[in-house]
Structure formats: C-alpha cells, structure tokens
C-alpha cells in the first residue's frame, strides 16, 4: 500500500542544511500497524508530514518517492494532494488541546471533513433539494462517528466547543475527524503522549478497533517503545533522521540488533519487585546540522569500533524480515 523510497527532507538553517529525514525507506501492507520509534527530534514527525507533503516552510522534500498504491505522492499537484489528504491518508496529532480549532463547534469540525471530500453528496442529489438532505445526512454521519469513537451523548456534544471537551474526548473527536472519510492509512503522531495513562490505553484500544473493523493501516509514531511493543506488528526505530532498525515487534524487543535499540530497551522502567537500575544512553542526540561521523550514533555507542567512523552504512537485510544499519551485522 505504502512504499517510501529514499525519502530525504531538509530544513535550511543558519548553521547549514539539516537533514531531518535521511534516505528513509519504508514499506507497509494494507491494514498493517507499524510503530515508528525514536527520541524527540529524530525525524519521525517530519517523515509523517513528508508523506502528506505538509512539511512546514522552509523545509522541503529534496529526493525520494512516496508511493501510495503505486502513485508517487511527491510528484502530485497541490490539488491532487488535497484530494488525498483527509480522504485517503488522515493524520492525528500529538496535542489534542491545540489541534481542534477553538472557535468552531466540534461537530462542525468533524462535518467539515465529510463536506470537503463530498462524502454525503452522492446520495443527497442535486441542489437545492439535495442540499438540505445532504446537511442532515452529514450530521447523522457525524453523530454516528462520534458514537463510534466513544464520545458519550453525541447529539448534545455535537454543538459544544473544544474547550468544553476533556483532553481524551478531544483526541476522540480528532480520531473521528480522521476517520470521517474512511482513510486507508492513518498517521498517528504521538496520539497518546499528551494524555493520562488510563486514557492512553483507551485511545490505543480505539485505534486497534478501528484497524480491525475498517482495515485501516496505521503508522503509530511514538517515543515510547513500550507503547509500540504493545500495539504494533512491526517496529521501525529511527535515529538522527535515519532508520536504524526494522523488524517484527517480538523479534526486535527480544533480540534487538542495533546498539541504539538495545539502549532504548534498557532505559524503559518496568514494574517488578526487584530494584533494577535504569541505564540511560550516555550523551545527547547529535546536532543534525553538524554530523561528524558516518554513523550518527557513533559517539554514544557502547559497541563502537574504529571502522564505524568512516565506513559506509546501509540498511542491511539480515534475514527473518529484519533490517539493521550497523557495521556489526
């Protein structure tokens, strides 16, 4: 369904060009759930925004392809892109509190998605008699969507404003917006980060149910390897704009290959009786405008070899559906 080939997105800065997504390759089948994991600023969000061609100015995609059902989204015209956004590929964002427009009723914001892509126009017939019927049909559909994502008493809440919703309810409303046109791919950019833990679980549950009932493919962006392990069939680990490891979830969790993935796993707290010392990865994420080594992880790596400094690195297939970008394999 989705095939990203050599995607490179850059941001010009005063210190030089920052490559926020560096030759990203990714493939995804319909209905699959993929977890994109990494620290803040590793290029996860930029990769997602690149798929929709919504990278904020002055960032731009310089090379690569984003094939969606065989068609390259990078080459689409702005108009064609608009027909894909929200309809074929929808996105949900990190902070629900700031993502709904504060001056419009929640129900109307969901309805707008239906309206823009003419979802209810076909049954409704032509203007003027169709217009009224269409409005009613759209409203009914919105109520149905709100029910589906678990917003209680949707009839009343249709007319409420975002500030009258709690964070969890706002995220549900945003999922309803994303779901309105039955997209085939849902990009979820840290959908639970801003929410309480119990609400997090509910939202993830909801996303899984949507995946099962509608067959929507989901890319879940998260910095929480635990969430990804729980939720995804496949895990993709990003570091400094590059994919460093990719593989089936169980394999990656039980037998991490890349030293960065191993470090990430060691730094997750677990609930156990015994006290275990957390091992943070030493150092900080390198300055993307000023990468010194070929392997961006070189100066933080506990398994670094002298040749790491200069050797060419590529994402190598090591069998069993696993890929890794490291000289060790």
């Amino acid at each position: 369904m989705l095939e990203i080939k050599g995607l490179r997105t850059v941001f010009p800065t005063s210190k030089g060009e920052v490559v926020a997504a560096k030759d990203v390759d990714l493939t995804m089948e319909p209905g699959q759930i993929i977890g994109l994991v990494g620290e803040s600023g590793c290029g996860k969000s930029v990769t997602m925004l690149s798929i929709l061609r919504l990278v904020p100015h002055p960032g731009r995609i310089v090379s690569g392809q984003v094939l969606f059902f065989g068609e390259d989204l990078v080459k689409k015209s702005p108009l064609e892109m608009r027909r894909i956004r929200g309809k074929e590929i929808a996105m949900i964002f990190q902070d629900p509190m700031t993502t709904l427009n504060p001056v419009f009723k929640v129900g109307e914001q969901i309805r707008e998605s239906l309206r823009i892509h003419g979802i209810m126009s076909e049954q409704a017939g032509s203007w003027p008699w169709g217009a009224r019927y269409r409005l009613q049909a759209e409203r009914d559909k919105v109520i149905q969507l709100m029910e589906e994502v678990g917003i209680p008493s949707p009839q009343a809440r249709y007319h409420e404003y975002p500030h009258q919703f709690s964070g969890g309810m706002q995220q549900r409303a945003l999922i309803a917006i994303a779901l309105a046109c039955e997209p085939r791919l849902l990009l979820a950019d840290e959908p639970t980060t801003a929410l309480d833990v119990t609400i997090q679980a509910q939202i993830l549950d909801l996303l899984r149910r949507i995946n099962e009932t509608h067959g929507t493919g989901i890319i879940l962006v998260t910095h929480d390897l635990g969430v990804a392990a729980e939720f995804c069939e496949e895990i993709v680990v990003m570091y400094a704009g590059q994919i460093v490891e990719r593989g089936p979830t169980d394999e990656v969790i039980q037998r991490p290959l890349h030293p960065y993935t191993r470090g990430l796993l060691r730094s997750i707290p677990r609930i156990t009786r015994e006290k275990r010392k957390l091992e943070p990865i030493p150092g900080v994420v390198p300055d993307l405008a000023n990468l010194k080594y070929n392997c961006a992880f070189y100066d933080r790596c506990d398994a670094a070899l002298p040749k790491c400094e200069h050797d060419e690195l590529e994402l190598r297939d090591v069998g069993g559906g696993r890929l890794v970008r490291c000289v060790l394999y």
């Binding site: 919504l54 608009r82 956004r85 964002f93 504060p102």
Partner: peptide, 9 residues
C-alpha cells in the same frame, strides 16, 4: 489546528 485544517485536505 491550522496544520489539521491542511491535513483535512
């Protein structure tokens, strides 16, 4: 929300 509006198409 401006980004969302764009992402809606």
């Amino acid at each position: 929300y401006v980004m969302l509006a764009r992402a809606k198409g």
